[in-house]
Amino acid sequence: MQDSIQREITIKAPKERVYEAITDPAQIITWFPDSIDGGLSKGDKPFLHFGEHDKTQIYVVAAQPHDYFSYRWVPGGNTFDGDIASVPTTLVEFRITETDGGSVVTLTESGFASLPADIIEASFKQNSGGWDFMMERLEKKFAEA
């Protein structure tokens, strides 16, 4: 069983532009959380907001323009409100490399096997719920079109 997830996507833009979209608080909210309290520099612990009620704190581990960005995430913690250093987390990493005509973003989330049982269970529920929600929105979008 794998301890990590890895995904890759090619984006037709220079890596500086991609790095900015991931690490600029004003830009990250266009594709990830709905809003953010705090910065995205190394050592920052901003709160990410999802919808009106859910928020979670992340911890920025590294921010190296324009190649690498990583943070600690509390799985099952869309509503996590506490000191992130005190709880088990997964590590989320973005690696950006330049390729012909664009950039390749490699996303890695690791650390599942060493999480305590109750956290995984919460994460499982959160993520499957999250996916159902996304599917619903997607279907709605197509129904409207």
Partner: peptide
């Protein structure tokens, strides 16, 4: 994550 990365791609 696929969903999120696609949203990132669209935005950029």
């Amino acid at each position: 994550w696929d969903q999120r990365l696609l949203a990132l791609k669209d935005f950029v």
